[in-house]
Write a protein that binds this DNA or RNA. Structure first.
Length: 462
RNA sequence: GCAGCUGUAGCUCAGUUGGUUAGAGCGCCUGGUUGUGGUUCAGGAGGUCGGUAGUUCGAAUCUACCCAGCUGUACCA
């Protein structure tokens, strides 16, 4: 090994991680369940490109100081700025604007894919993660907003959560507009207020009020500016956030749909604001009501696992007429993290059979055994490079193989095979502390006829 | 970006008021065993003590600056 200061370090950029077989399997299974539900509601799949023109997905050109600005961007040969997608909604808007004439309206599509955000990662937050979106383009009705929420409930239920473990909270952007009108709040201040309100989950009502007025210190002692509202105005906003006695036409329409699903945990909560800029009507968020911890067993504030709303102006950015649209995004990776902790996702592994290599001379026999086993659809590998049986068994143990087949000269002569059940052996080992006895026991091992190989294998595998 | 904390072996960490050759556990490798996993025993590899400069006879330890990581916070389509 050559050691040199200039050797690259074998490490990953922060916020990225490799995905092993376990996480890959979980992603596949969870995605499949979500897909199935979407299909039941008439959605069809679409996959858009992972890279878009920066201007298409609504980001200004990266500035020199901070080329990132939240998205991963770079310049093409012709110096046009390109970006990795940071969500699936902006690319959908581009796709719809580009293909509008050819699409069947309403256009209902679902999409599962990785998205990238160039920002500081936090506990349980990465810069590359799997998102699942379902959107409906071409209908301006709160009924379909409601149906989306029902669908999200169905998805979460199908994933194994019960209705006391999650909650969908909805609100409406219009009621906030009205409030700002009556309070005579300026446009700039509106955004600041909504940002403060959006932090209710983390800071609580008290924290929000501090932000609305003078500002507050975070736990490190750093100070944040407040909005500077008077006590009176701040109080009005705070009480508005929990005032359930308000409504409008959209909310009533929404309620008329969900009232058919009284057991579904869908609740009006005016303090839900989300997105801040591009949402135009109904907005909603799915939240887990259970505690979640990260790898280090630290409790993390989980926030929402899905969210969405109506964005009627997003497609008209491309110079078209306004096209009504509504959609929901699910954070699949974070959802998996939660489901794992609730033990709702068990790792499932397929059994592996390993043929030990006692002598290279027997290779033709090993190869023919492997062929038979694989033809039955059972995973099988031949040990090629080691003659030391102890090492081969250790490899099998660590790899999680179920069965080892041992056939040396003696067995082959007699037309037999030693078949070793590793799981059973592991059980037996608990009661043996003496090394020689353990060796002698040949735990979980039996001898079978070569001709009955497949029958014996299936018996052991159950 | 702002703030606080932390940087010693692959991982988790110990290292006394500055004092000889920087340690432990776990993991890894080899052997006891070239036909038997686990347990066990014996041995081994692995460090620019985050970096640079300074103080000192002497620095992992003290000082300054830099870098990285973590946590909080801000921005976030």
């Amino acid at each position: 090994m050559s050691k040199n200061k200039n050797n690259p370090k074998a490490i990953l950029p922060k916020g990225f991680k490799d995905s092993d077989i376990e996480i890959l399997n979980l992603r596949k299974r969870v995605t499949k369940i979500i897909e199935n539900e979407c299909q039941k509601y008439g959605f069809i799949e679409l996959d858009t490109a992972t890279i878009e023109f920066t201007e298409s997905i609504g980001k200004f050109l990266p500035d020199v100081e901070r080329p990132s600005g939240g998205v991963f961007s770079f310049q093409d040969d012709d110096e046009k700025w390109l970006s990795l997608r940071y969500d699936l909604t902006a690319p959908l808007a581009r796709y719809v604007a580009q293909n509008y004439q050819n699409l069947v309206k309403p256009f209902k599509r679902y999409q599962s894919g990785l998205v990238w955000r160039n920002e500081k990662p936090g506990p349980g937050r990465y810069r590359e993660f799997l998102q699942f979106d379902a959107d409906i383009v071409g209908i301006d009705s709160a009924l379909i907003d409601a149906e989306l929420c029902i669908m999200v409930c169905d998805i979460l239920t199908k994933l194994g959560l019960n209705t006391s473990q999650f909650e969908i909270k909805f609100s409406n952007r219009e009621i906030w507009k009205n409030l700002f009108l009556t309070l005579k709040i300026e446009k700039d201040t509106e955004t600041k207020i909504l940002r403060a309100v959006d932090k209710k989950d983390r800071l609580g009502m008290g924290g929000v009020k501090e932000l609305l007025q003078a500002g507050r210190k975070d736990t490190s002692g750093d100070y944040m500016d407040g909005v500077g509202l008077s006590d009176d105005v701040a109080d009005k906003i705070i009480s508005f956030m929990s005032d359930l006695n308000q409504s409008n036409a959209q909310i009533e329409e929404f309620n008329s749909y969900i009232s058919n699903f009284s057991s579904y945990p869908i609740k009006f909560d005016p303090s839900v604001v989300r997105g801040l800029d591009y949402y135009t009507g109904m907005i909603f968020e799915a939240e887990l009501l259970i505690d979640v911890t990260n790898d280090k067993e630290e409790k993390i504030v989980f926030g929402s696992i899905a969210g969405g709303g109506r964005y009627d102006k997003l497609i008209s950015r491309f110079g078209k007429d306004d096209v009504p649209a509504t959609g929901i995004s699910i954070g699949v990776d974070r959802l998996i993290m939660a489901l794992k902790q609730l033990d709702l996702l068990k790792a499932e592994t397929k059994p592996l059979v390993v043929i030990a290599n006692i002598d290279d001379q027997n290779m033709p026999e090993y190869i023919s055994m492997a062929r038979e086993i694989r033809r039955e659809g059972i995973a099988c590998e031949i040990s090629f490079d080691s003659k030391n049986l102890g090492k081969q068994l250790k490899y099998c143990d660590r790899k999680g193989a179920s069965i080892v087949l041992i056939a040396g000269e003696e067995e082959i002569k007699k037309g037999e095979i030693s078949i070793k059940d590793l799981d059973k052996g592991k059980q037996v080992s608990k009661d043996i502390t003496d090394r020689d006895k353990w060796k002698e026991a040949k735990a979980g091992q039996q001898t079978i006829k070569r001709s009955e190989l497949l029958i014996a294998l299936k018996k052991v595998l159950g």
